[in-house]
């Protein structure tokens, strides 16, 4: 559908949250938690922090929870009964104030969860999620959305994208049918947009350092350059902080918990940075050294996902670099990769 432009007065945002709550939907928004900002459920707009640059964790938990029950089992007589979770009981949810990088990330995550097997859990959650994005008025040195084909005002992935104009009011771009349905909850709040509403001047300036296509081609061309990957990864500790804060990392592990007579099957986040991630039952580990694991992380995002799922696996949010205890800076290492002599 064609994007419709409306004006949402700054004081109307509170009313919008009330209307959404009144309609029985849950609202999640960035909330200040001490030194960090994280997505959390809110009852009123006063709880939200819309001036944030980036949350520590992405909102992927809403679509791909860090622990999710996918099955329960119970022994009855001689037989084992299994039961699927009731996905129809999932609440309708609105995430409000998500930046364009995160909104775009939903597409990348979705491409993995609907690539081959159609993941019922992810799809059920996605169907019930409406994204009210918020353009970025400011970025920081870790942001690089412009280098991965996005920008501080990209509408990709948002059902409605809000941009805070100089007046403090929001330009609301209604992008999808889901966005339109949300507007229907409070049509009186969405006023006609002034003809001269200037979105561009309200956006952060994010430098474009490379293109994701060149990053992918270069990573592929340098695949066998062990010295490069090992050199970049020498300080890497092999933790999962980067993968767990990433809005597109989708690896998971399956764990059964309980006894032989009853229990549950859980899906849990996993990370390719962990030393034991690829260990075989034989004891052989095809990615024995951290350099190989680091290469996998970059290759997966910039080469394998574009080849297999026709999407990129990095949206330039910079979370991995901010969260890294040892300052592994993905943007810097991608630039190094592009500059390295072949």
């Amino acid at each position: 559908m064609e994007i419709e432009r409306r004006l949402l007065k700054k004081e109307a945002l509170a009313g919008l949250v009330e209307k959404i709550n009144a309609a029985g939907r849950k609202v999640h928004a960035p909330v200040c938690e001490g030194a960090r900002v994280e997505f959390a459920p809110i009852d009123s707009i006063a709880e939200a922090d819309l001036g944030y640059v980036q949350t520590t964790q992405s909102a992927k938990n809403l679509l791909f929870p860090r622990v999710e029950r996918i099955l329960s089992f119970k022994r009855r007589g001689g037989a084992m009964e299994t039961a699927d979770p009731d996905l129809s009981a999932l609440p309708e949810t609105v995430v409000l104030g998500m930046h364009p990088c995160d909104a775009a990330a939903i597409g990348s995550l979705g491409a993995i969860f609907t690539w081959d097997t159609q993941d019922a859990f992810f799809k059920a959650r996605l169907e019930k999620l409406t994204v009210v994005g918020l353009s970025c008025a400011a970025g920081d040195e870790y942001c690089f959305c412009a280098s991965v084909g996005l920008g501080p005002g990209s509408t990709e992935g948002s059902d409605i994208l809000l941009t805070r104009l100089a007046s403090g009011d929001f330009l609301a771009e209604i992008v999808t049918a889901k966005g339109k349905a949300l507007v229907e909850l409070a049509p009186e709040l969405f006023l006609p947009a002034p003809a001269g509403a200037d979105k561009d001047s309200a956006l952060a300036r994010i430098e474009k350092s490379f293109t994701r296509e060149e990053a992918g081609e270069r990573a592929k061309a340098r695949f066998d350059d062990d010295a490069l990957w090992d050199g970049q990864a020498l300080r890497c500790l092999g933790c999962g902080a980067c993968a767990y804060v990433c809005p597109t990392c989708a690896c998971f592990d399956i764990q059964d918990e309980g006894t032989t007579s009853r229990g549950v099957r859980l899906r849990c986040w996993d990370s390719c940075g962990f030393p034991a991630f690829t260990i075989h039952t034989s004891g052989h580990n095809p990615r024995e050294e951290q350099g190989a694991r680091w290469r996998q992380r970059l290759m997966h995002k910039f080469s394998y996902m574009p080849e297999r799922q026709d999407v990129f696996g990095c949206v330039g949010c910079g979370r991995c670099s901010r969260a890294c205890p040892v300052d592994m800076n993905i943007k810097e290492h991608l630039i190094d990769l592009l500059e390295a002599k072949s």
Partner: peptide
């Protein structure tokens, strides 16, 4: 979030196989 950054950053956590990675039996829930 069980990212194990605490463990990986710890110079005294040098075990090549941590207790949480032992799963026969599984001592610590994953």
């Amino acid at each position: 979030i069980k990212c194990y950054a605490c463990r990986q950053a710890c110079p005294m956590c040098y075990c090549p196989r941590c207790t949480v990675e032992c799963n026969q039996p599984q001592w610590i829930p994953v």
